[in-house]
Design a protein around this nucleic acid. Sequence first.
DNA 1: AAATTGACTGATTTAGTATTTCGGTCAGTT
DNA 2: AACTGACCGAAATACTAAATCAGTCAATTT
Lengths: 191, 191
Amino acid sequence: MAIVDRKKLIIEAAAKSFSLYGYKATTMDQVAKLANVGKGTIYTFFKTKEELFDEIITSLIVDIRLEVEAAMDDSASILENVHTVLVRVHEFRETHQLTIKLIQEERDMGTQIVVEAMQRVEESIVQYMKVIIQKAIDKGEIKACDPEVTAFVMLKMYFSLVVDWQRNHPPLDKEEISKLFELYLLKGLLT
Amino acid sequence: MAIVDRKKLIIEAAAKSFSLYGYKATTMDQVAKLANVGKGTIYTFFKTKEELFDEIITSLIVDIRLEVEAAMDDSASILENVHTVLVRVHEFRETHQLTIKLIQEERDMGTQIVVEAMQRVEESIVQYMKVIIQKAIDKGEIKACDPEVTAFVMLKMYFSLVVDWQRNHPPLDKEEISKLFELYLLKGLLT
DNA sequence: AAATTGACTGATTTAGTATTTCGGTCAGTT
DNA sequence: AACTGACCGAAATACTAAATCAGTCAATTT
């Protein structure tokens, strides 16, 4: 189209600004300037700053999902697929500027809107894993269980091992984490 | 003894004040007044406010341990004992004024000293569970595994289920949590 | 007339600073 | 020798003036 797609410009500017400065430190004037757009124009597309932010988070969720889907292998085992999802999600979190900044803002300032956004991201990952787990149940690969609780527990366990454990202990490498996952969740501890 | 045990008075006053007001809002003047003691006297027993606090936390750890030990049953299975420990710890956290207050202060204000104290409490629980798990391994009840990582994972999983899960879902009752524990950690998901 | 703009507004944040509080000390008291 | 509480400087807090910001809307552009 001949005329510029202002909405797209705004979204790109907002994504950039949220990535660089986080939610709080991003101003609507800043976004307008970055987008080469009058501030009022933003408000023709988004009712509030929070709504604009939610749009960015929604596309972040899509990005994570695409990233994860690309690595999925339908012929692989449940262990492999679940582990792949978790590794990819973790890598994404550690490499993408926006997530890095938001995790930081959540930790250091506890910005409510950011806390909620990160919960939404987490919830979306759980929902995605839920589907994988349901498939594994249907295929008879794993026992019948609540797929949502299971996905939730897997995510929490993974992040416990890669994030919390490393606060007081030498980090576990990918191989070890995969082994632990297999032992605890799949094979079980019982002899 | 004829003379009052001032150290004991101070410790009791401090425990009371930390329970009522948390770490930050407790002042040394306050503790001195509660203990009916000159402020200087506190400093003959404790070098700093933090050292006094650490003493209280140390005895909190002992209290939790006693509480938990009372419920242990050497003839019971690993599942029963581990679950008992976790339930007791959780109940303790929810009913004792000091832990309630400190969890609140950690969450709402992020007081560094309180964060560190709670980590010490958690670490002590892990160490205690580690012993139980080592026994279970020795008895051949469960597979060989790193007892510390295992204890850590169990604690994290339990609190994920009873604390984090309930933020967005209807709470799981004790029975369900016990079942989930058994399924995920002991029996394993594999068919 | 539809789309866009940026000056404007009032509520909120921040910066600056005066005041109070608090952890820790130590000279004096018991 | 044990204990005390007035005292100190650093740190937190309360206060307030100034700046900032989300959101609006009358004026301008297309």
